[in-house]
Every structure is written in C-alpha cells, then in structure tokens.
C-alpha cells in the first residue's frame, strides 16, 4: 500500500459506481479484493479505465475489445479474472 491521498481514494471508489450492473459487480469485487494493494502506476491505470464510457468499459472487461496501453491492460486482466 502506497501513500495515496485518502480523499482521492474515496473519490475513485465512488467513481467505481457505474450505470451498468455488470460493472458495479465486477468493480465491487475489485475494490474489496485488490484496490488497497495497488501500486501508483496501477492506480493511475485504474483511474484511466474509469474515464471510459460504461458500454466501452464493459466491452473491455468482457474481453470483447482490448486497449492499446499495456499498463492499463494489466488492470483489465485483473478485472477479467476477478
């Protein structure tokens, strides 16, 4: 666990609430199991993922599409497996 701004962490948790149930379920597990042990690079990759529109985000999580950035894909692989 690195020193993140605690307010920022809470904000990211709230941004993990989405318009699609499928994403809520996957991200809920991710927050419970993995979120607290992310490295700074992983945290910024996760934040970048949260910027995606919900449908695009779900396609990525479901493995229908991939993203170019390998660091973001590392988080995607965690989400796909969780």
């Amino acid at each position: 666990m690195t020193d993140f701004d605690p307010v920022e962490l809470k904000r990211i948790r709230w941004h993990s609430r989405r318009g699609l149930l499928e994403l809520d379920l996957v991200l809920e597990r991710f927050l419970a199991q993995r979120f607290d042990s992310l490295s700074p690079a992983e945290m910024s990759a996760y934040k970048a993922l949260l910027e995606l529109p919900d449908n695009d985000f779900l396609d990525v999580v479901n493995g229908k599409t991939d993203l170019d950035d390998p660091s973001i894909m590392q988080i995607v692989e965690i989400l796909r497996a969780i």
Binding site: R17, R18, G19, L20, D54
Partner: peptide, 12 residues
C-alpha cells in the same frame, strides 16, 4: 446527479 450524467442507468 450522484454520478457523472452519462453514467446514469439510462445507459443500460
């Protein structure tokens, strides 16, 4: 809005 508007449940 509690969430960013384009993340409302209408997206579903």
């Amino acid at each position: 809005s509690k969430v960013f508007p384009t993340r409302s449940h209408t997206v579903a």
